[in-house]
Simulated assay, not measured.
Amino acid sequence: MLYMEKVNLLEKFAHIPDHWNPRITGELNGQQVKLAKFLGAFDWHHHDHEDELFLVVQGEFTMEFRDKNVLVKEGEFLIVPRGVEHRPVAEKEAAVLLFEPAGTVNTGNLPDSDRTRHTLDRI
């Protein structure tokens, strides 16, 4: 028998001590629900084959694109289409839920960045 369990996002985020290091907290239909804390600027990158959804649970961050910036506040989400170069920047710590295909590498076309995480922990 399969039992469903709810996930308390704030409790999960309390177990994340670092920044730019996503953790898997759920999976469905070939997609993963990931949690990460953002602080400062990430690397410019794009994903050739994956769209990404960024949902702000706490705080806010700016998604920088080459032609504009979009401020994403608590309770809002933004979808970055595949192939679009982007860079998230958080002036203060932000707790962000990401929804993307399983196997999506956080640095996209920069697989050798110091921030690349090929294997993610589960929380």
Rank of each mutant, 00 (worst) to 15 (best):
D67Y: 01
P88Y: 09
I16P: 00
P22Y: 01
E52F: 09
D48E: 15
N8T: 12
P88N: 11
K92R: 15
E100D: 12
K34Y: 06
Q58F: 00
E5N: 15
D48N: 14
F99C: 09
D121P: 10
F13H: 05
T104F: 02
H46L: 14
E60M: 13
L9W: 10
N109H: 11
N109L: 06
L120I: 08
A90M: 00
E85N: 06
P81Q: 13
F61W: 11
E52Y: 07
F77H: 14
D48R: 14
F54K: 03
T25G: 07
P111R: 10
H45C: 07
H86P: 08
G103H: 14
E52H: 09
G108V: 08
L2V: 15
E50D: 14
E50S: 15
N109M: 05
P17A: 10
F65N: 02
Q31P: 00
R117S: 05
L78N: 01
F61R: 07
H47F: 07
R122S: 14
H45I: 05
Y3M: 13
E93L: 03
R23E: 11
V89H: 04
V72Q: 00
K12W: 02
R66H: 13
A41T: 07
Q32T: 09
P88L: 10
L120V: 08
A94D: 01
D114Y: 08
F13D: 08
L110I: 08
L9Q: 11
L98S: 12
H86D: 03
N21H: 14
H86A: 10
F65V: 02
V57M: 06
G108N: 12
D51K: 06
W44L: 08
T107C: 12
D121Q: 14
P17T: 04
P22I: 03
L28M: 11
N69Q: 11
K92D: 09
F77R: 04
E100M: 09
L78P: 02
G75M: 02
V80Y: 00
K73M: 13
V7C: 13
W44H: 11
L28W: 08
P111K: 11
W20T: 04
G75T: 02
P17Y: 05
I24G: 07
